[in-house]
């Protein structure tokens, strides 16, 4: 039986897609932020693997084919960015300065709290790129000597948390301008935050997708410098 799984070219891929489909349906039925399709799908896959005593390697040898599409998908982020190019041009200075300040403040906080708890350098480097979209975060983590797997976990966790708290945070700190809300959402919680921002409004969603890209690029540049600081 297990041999059948080990030799399969499609098992991991098919299992992932089925679980994701269940995740999407569940999120439709229960439209609360915690019902995130990616979160549901990942938990389901882990449960199935554990229940069937199937090793991660068996799953991964076919599931990793999905990862192949990540680079073209990230390249495609240029499209939503280009669609909002007018709004981008008009508020260019405010957008760039605020996203840059947010990125720096975020990484300084990781540095400060990391120091406080005395976390290992490996964990620190893995946590640095956690506020940006997974594809770029994985690349950055690998480049600066972090553990990409830890980074991905932290990215997903950060995104979910950000989407859940964004409305409360914006209300508490009186962030009301649609562009500011969108930028805050995308800069702190990447794609998962952007899906939340789209719920709040069109401008918020557009600004949030812009923030994903800009934050990603800033982090690519800043993370290696911050990595050397520790």
């Amino acid at each position: 039986m297990n041999e059948m799984f080990i030799n399969s070219v499609y098992f991991g891929c098919a299992l992932s897609l089925i679980c994701y489909w269940i995740g999407v349906q569940t999120a439709k039925r229960f439209p609360v932020t915690i019902c995130n399709p990616l979160l549901i799908a990942s938990i389901l896959v882990i449960v199935v693997l554990a229940a069937g005593s199937i090793s991660f390697e068996t799953y991964h040898q076919s599931a990793e084919k999905l990862t192949w599409l990540l680079t073209p998908a990230t390249v495609s982020l240029a499209v939503p960015m280009y669609r909002e190019v007018q709004l981008l041009r008009k508020n260019l200075a405010a957008i760039l300065v605020s996203l840059f300040s947010g990125c720096v403040a975020g990484m300084m906080t990781v540095w400060g709290i990391g120091r406080l708890f005395g976390v290992s350098e490996e964990l620190y480097l893995s946590l640095l790129p956690k506020s940006i979209t997974t594809a770029i975060a994985m690349g950055v983590s690998e480049e600066i000597g972090g553990v990409p797997t830890v980074t991905v976990g932290m990215v997903v966790f950060t995104g979910l948390l950000g989407a859940i708290i964004v409305k409360t945070v914006c209300r508490l700190f009186r962030i009301t301008h649609p562009i500011a809300v969108g930028l805050a959402c995308g800069n702190a919680a990447h794609a998962i935050g952007t899906s939340k921002a789209l719920e709040i409004g069109e401008v918020e969603g557009a600004m949030s997708s812009l923030a994903i890209v800009a934050a990603g690029i800033f982090t690519v540049v800043l993370a290696p410098l911050m990595g050397m600081l520790y």
Binding site: S16, T134, P148, V156
Partner: peptide, 12 residues
């Protein structure tokens, strides 16, 4: 795109 991240999250 979100579905493409499943293998990376399961790797946790």
């Amino acid at each position: 795109m979100p579905a493409l991240f499943i293998p990376s999250v399961v790797k946790l």
